[in-house]
């Protein structure tokens, strides 16, 4: 019955928190983007790009802090392409996202080979732990507090959310829909980029090809399960963090490891199946702003 006590061990709780960070940052990123009505499935590729940029910069400068900053910058860069394609050129949001995910997979693998000759790069240093946890975890909590306040209590936050609900109304009072959408998408890139940087530098201590492993999509599912609210998203992301923590910490008799590996993905589907109908996405999700005249 070792596995049963393991599930409730304090180490499993800490692992849950660690695993939940990249997912919750992706979920919050998705929330910012969809608040303005832009669907961002490029989060997956952004996490990968952030992980790669963070790894390379940490190793070349010796500073994990610079690495994390570059991860954020790389995330913003990817998000900028998504914004240009889907906001300025009004391309289909999902196609643009798929393209960026393919791009991130190819580019990171290619550059890893060119720079190091292999597809896995170990990270040489990480931030000093604070109370046993990475400082990024505390930063993430702070970001969630700030976002909850920002999106619901500030003028800019309300404008962002209004863009996702009724673009024409926002436009009619003289606010630029395009600017709001760029802001939402770029913030989502910064957050998911940070999540990727954390994943490589603080959590795994290495970069490997395809290491995002669906976290961007699981983040989107968390956002949906959390009914497009920051705290809901954080709660859902913790659930996924828990399911990922389990797969590393326990080995349940008669259940093959491969089935534990499936767990986060099965839960994602279960969550989507259970959540929808009770949660409503922003009304303008996936729409383009077409101004008359």
């Amino acid at each position: 019955m070792d596995w049963l006590t393991n599930i409730f061990a304090i180490s499993t709780l800490l692992a849950t928190i660690r695993m939940a960070v990249p997912i919750s940052l992706a979920a919050l990123g998705g929330l910012f983007s969809e608040s303005t009505g832009v669907i961002n499935i490029a989060l997956e590729g952004i996490i990968l790009m952030g992980a790669f940029a963070g790894t390379i910069v940490t190793n070349t400068t010796g500073s994990p802090l610079l690495g994390l900053i570059m991860a954020v910058v790389a995330g913003i860069g990817m998000a900028l392409i998504h914004a240009i394609a889907s906001v300025t050129f009004k391309a289909n949001h999902i196609i643009s996202g798929v393209a960026l995910n393919l791009f991130a997979t190819g580019v990171t693998f290619f550059l890893a080979l060119v720079l190091t000759g292999g597809s896995q790069i170990s990270v040489e240093s990480s931030l000093p732990k604070f109370l046993g946890l990475s400082p990024v975890i505390y930063v993430t909590v702070a970001i969630f507090f700030f976002s909850g306040f920002f999106l619901y209590k500030t003028k800019l936050g309300l404008r962002l959310r209004a863009t996702g609900e009724h673009m024409a109304a926002v436009d009619s009072v003289g606010i630029s829909v395009t600017k709001m959408r760029y802001l939402g998408v770029l913030v989502s890139g910064a957050l998911a980029g940070l999540g990727g940087g954390y994943l490589a530098i603080e959590q795994a201590n290495f970069f490997t090809k395809g290491m995002s492993a669906g976290r961007g999509f699981i983040g989107l599912a968390s956002m949906i399960f959390g009914k497009w609210t920051p705290w809901g998203a954080a709660g859902a992301a913790s659930l996924f963090g828990f399911s990922q923590a389990l797969q590393f910490r326990i080995s349940i008799p008669f259940i093959p490891d491969e089935f534990l590996q499936m767990l986060p993905y099965l839960i994602t589907i279960a969550v989507l199946v259970g959540a929808v109908g009770r949660a409503t996405p922003p009304a303008e999700d996936g729409n383009h702003f077409l101004k008359e005249g």
Partner: peptide, 23 residues
Amino acid sequence: KRGAHEVITTIMMNFIAVAMVQY
């Protein structure tokens, strides 16, 4: 039946298929 968006469910089904086929 449930309104689950096919983009996310099909991607999740990819991961499940990989683990299942492996097993």
